[in-house]
Design a protein around this nucleic acid. Structure first.
Length: 802
RNA sequence: GCGGAAGUGGCGGAAUGGCAGACGCAUCAGACUCAAAAUCUGACGGUGGCAACAUCGUGUGGGUUCAACUCCCAUCUUCCGCACCA
């Protein structure tokens, strides 16, 4: 009898051996086929690893280990996305330098990851807070600046009253700060911006060429929000000026009965003198300014607005004189800040018209009374009351009117995007300094490349200031410099970059992590890119994933990287919820610590359980009993060692089952079906135990198939039985197509779609033979006459009787 | 409102249009034990039946098909994004 399975001995032992043997290091042998597997690097928080982390890490660890056994040069790296608010907040509270907090947290994370036995190449570990790393983050920023894609502008930002920092739209959830939950207000500040909008079309087009799960593509497309329409100029009555609007429904131009401008629209100030009810307009505008974007949309149910008295517009298609209104349902930040209103065929316009008793003119006939109900169906409907467009379909009318507008010089075709530029400044200490100097005379002057990295200065206090300046601003020694351009007095930029900066290109650095001359060598980039498989959370779809695609496309246009897309394949995992089905959180008291699982059951059990818990892309609830079940499975595998014979090859009664399992497990590991791969291995185990013995080769194959999921126990068993070498050095088993089916098959026989019998037939039996056997088997069970006989080769027989 | 995902035993979940419930958990029974735990063996969707077996059954209602959890139409529920984007 073998010694009992003790994970506390087995697991540290092999982790040590693998480290020593550098078992999982990606080589720079560029002649071998490569495979680059990537998981999102964690933010090393003070809480340590969460049980959610091992799910994606284990999944791609399985792929990485399998691919290595298949002969690939595999890059499976890990690092730290270590700039960020929680670390800074912790530092402020406890008076510890954030760099030290980061160092401690990283050490903890690394130890935890190590204890789970991941095959990361730790020689390529990176940390976004290392000056040698952010050197290149700053370098990319300078490139963006030089290409005019980074600019500074006064703009209202989302200001978190708690963190005292500007937030991106994406970081504001339900009107409060995503991080701290404090209310977010609007505040005008000069901010660095990145022109991601310039890449909007490229970011959509690029999705055609990549293998992303569909919902990721759909989310990104919706987020970018492309729409096709036209810009049309409406003359302002008695003025030179035109009021330009954007519409996706130029076909409804004849139905325009009024116009609306956003409260911030410049036309208001310009014609202040003409506007008779200026007080009312100013009053309305002041009220709108007080509302945050959130409140503005929250109060969307009830439309408000003021009619401008003394200013009217002309509908260019029919010359009709129409009023202009001000309303906050029109946003200055989308389109032109002004709209043409077609109440008959737009829901918002209809509501507004109803409330303020404005005329509603039907221009698309759809069988509805537009005085009673809005009609927005674009697919059906014919133009009416629309002059030369009458009788055309909506699609035809759109084309016709666009041509007409362009011919007359009144309007142009126009594509719009919902995507906004990326607010890139943070008034915080713990981030990458922005390598720009501001000179009164020369404006914004970039640092020279040789001066990078611009290292974050040491400060006394990390506290953000109430006036919205970064704590670095107080460091006059650092801030006051001479202008590299004119030599006059100048100041450094004191805002820092957002957390998304370092993570937008980190996968490039892994390919060549210590390069001091470039972010990575062209050879390394050419060899390793694109990332073959990138897995990460759904919550990063419209932030990190989009930002990093943007930077990558920019770097591609600059000739820095060799591929236009960074990631060939993108998948996403589901969350791990608490036992009660709710999100794990301290306040709910349902948090599971992975350390406890590793300690009590072992890393292999943790890994097996997290893969067995359910479909990889769906949320799943934690279950301690489920963990126990996986531990039990591994113990049963452990006990197999007593059943192994000295025989070679696969025994005849197991051959088919072995080949089938190799096929299924190999396929499932590559297709996010880890749970059914493990189920297949459990099922094979049950058969082996039932039989009572297995050959040496059967055991070897079994261990190799299980190894990516449970690397420690399989390595130990391989070693115990005295098999040659290490299991991680073995070749992945292959299956033989011809051995996937038994010589005699069990074919179910249905009568009218219901199974009545099963027949045994030879694998190569003809259709006639099978049907004959089937009919014999159901003799007497059929009432009526047989009208049809169906045989699906190798699968099923169905006899139809009436 | 728009977009996405999901509804299958007591639970987690399996099923290229081809035997619904693989695999695991829980439960029950048996073996082992003085006993318990662990382990092993077996049973385990509902209804009827001693049983063989019959019959119903994948949110609901229709449809296509020899055959539907799977495809089509309609509908309900839940979860997750986005939300006045003209």
């Amino acid at each position: 009898m073998s010694v009992p399975y003790n994970h506390k001995v087995v697991e540290p032992k092999w982790q040590g051996v693998w480290d020593e043997e550098k078992a999982f290091h990606a080589t720079n042998d560029f002649t071998k086929p490569k495979y680059y597997a990537l998981v999102e690097f964690p933010y090393p928080s003070g809480q340590g690893l969460h049980v959610g982390h091992p799910r994606p890490y284990t999944a791609l660890d399985i792929v990485a280990r399998k691919r290595r056994m298949q002969g690939y040069n595999v890059l499976y790296p890990m690092g730290w996305d270590a700039f960020g608010l929680p670390t800074e907040n912790y530092a402020i509270k406890n008076h510890i330098h954030p760099a030290l907090v980061t160092k401690n947290n990283v050490a903890r994370f690394k130890e935890q990851l190590h204890s789970i036995g991941y095959s990361f190449d730790w020689d390529r570990e990176i940390n976004t807070t290392d000056p040698s790393y952010y050197h290149w983050t700053q370098w990319i920023f300078l490139k963006l600046f030089k290409e005019g894609l980074a600019y500074k502008t006064e703009m209202p930002i989302n200001w978190c009253t708690g963190c005292k920092v500007g937030l991106a739209n994406e970081e504001v959830v339900d009107g409060v700060c995503e991080r701290c939950g404090s209310p977010v207000v609007r505040k005008v500040k000069s901010q660095w911006m990145l022109k991601i909008t310039e890449y909007a079309q490229k970011l959509i087009d690029g999705l055609e060429d990549v293998d992303y799960i569909e919902r990721v593509k759909v989310s990104q497309k919706n987020w970018i929000g492309r729409s096709e329409g036209a810009e049309v100029d409406f003359a302002v009555q008695g003025k030179e000026d035109k009021l330009r609007i954007y519409t996706t429904r130029p076909d409804t131009l004849f139905g325009v009965t009024y116009m609306v401008v956003s409260p911030e629209h410049p036309i208001l100030d310009k014609y202040q003198a003409e506007i008779k009810n200026w007080d009312a307009v100013v009053d309305y505008r002041a009220k709108a300014a007080l509302k945050s974007d959130f409140e503005r949309s929250e109060l969307a149910k009830e439309k408000t607005g003021v009619a401008i008295e003394g200013l009217r517009a002309v509908n260019p298609v029919n010359g009709k004189d129409i009023p202009i209104w001000v309303s906050d349902y029109v946003l200055m930040s989308y389109g032109t800040g002004a709209i043409m209103a077609v109440p008959a065929h737009d829901e918002r316009d209809w509501e507004f018209a109803k409330k303020f008793d404005l005329p509603i003119v039907e221009v698309v006939a759809g069988g509805k009374n537009v005085q009673e109900e809005v009609y927005t169906d674009v697919a059906e409907g014919t133009l009416v009351n629309s002059g030369f467009l009458d009788g055309k379909s909506v699609a035809e009318a759109k084309e016709a009117i666009k041509n007409w507008l362009e011919e007359k010089g009144i309007g142009t075709r126009k594509v719009n995007f919902k995507l906004r530029d990326w607010v890139f400044s943070r008034q915080r200490y713990w981030g990458e300094p922005i390598p720009i100097i501001h000179c009164e005379k020369c404006g914004y002057v970039p640092l020279k490349e040789e001066e990078l990295p611009l290292v974050l200065p040491e400060v006394e206090s990390y506290m953000p200031t109430d006036n919205g300046e970064s704590p670095i601003a107080a460091m006059t020694d650092w801030v006051n410099v001479t202008c590299p351009c004119c030599g006059g007095p100048a100041k450094r930029e004191t805002d820092t970059m957002p957390q998304w900066a370092g993570s937008s290109w980190y996968f490039l650095r892994y390919t060549d992590p210590t390069n001091e001359e470039a972010l990575a060598s062209p050879e390394a980039l050419k060899y390793w890119l694109p990332v073959d498989w990138y897995n990460g959370g759904m919550e990063h779809t419209t932030l990190h994933l989009l930002y990093s695609r943007f930077w990558h496309k920019f770097l591609y246009d600059q000739g820095v990287v060799p591929t236009s897309e960074p990631y060939a394949k993108r998948t996403s995992h589901g969350m791990i919820l608490g036992e009660n089905g709710e999100k794990m959180s301290k306040s709910r008291g349902n948090v599971v610590n992975p350390d406890d699982i590793v300690n009590d059951y072992g890393a292999d059990t943790l890994r097996t359980y997290e893969m067995f818990i359910g479909a990889f892309d769906m949320n799943a609830s934690w279950s301690e009993n489920g963990v126990k079940g996986c531990r039990r499975f591994l113990e049963r595998v452990w006990n197999l060692q007593d059943l192994v014979t000295k025989e070679k090859g696969y025994s005849s009664d197991f051959e088919v089952k072995m080949h089938q399992t190799i096929q299924k497990v190999s396929y499932d590991y590559e297709n996010l079906k880890y749970n059914t791969a493990i189920a297949a291995l459990m099922s094979l185990l049950n058969d082996i135990v039932k039989k009572g013995s297995l050959t040496e080769d059967e055991f070897k194959t079994y261990l190799i198939l299980l190894n990516p999921v449970a690397p420690h126990i399989t390595e130990e068993l391989w070693n115990t039985l005295g098999y040659e070498g290490r299991i991680y050095q073995q070749k992945w088993p292959e299956y033989d197509e011809s051995k996937l089916v038994e010589d005699t098959m069990q074919i179910p026989v249905q009568v009218n779609g219901k199974v009545k019998a099963t027949v045994s037939v030879l694998r190569d039996a003809s259709k006639e033979e099978v049907l004959a056997a089937a009919k014999a088997a159901i003799e007497g069970k059929v009432s009526g006459n047989i009208v049809k006989e169906i045989y699906v080769p190798g699968r099923i027989v169905n006899i139809v009787a009436k």
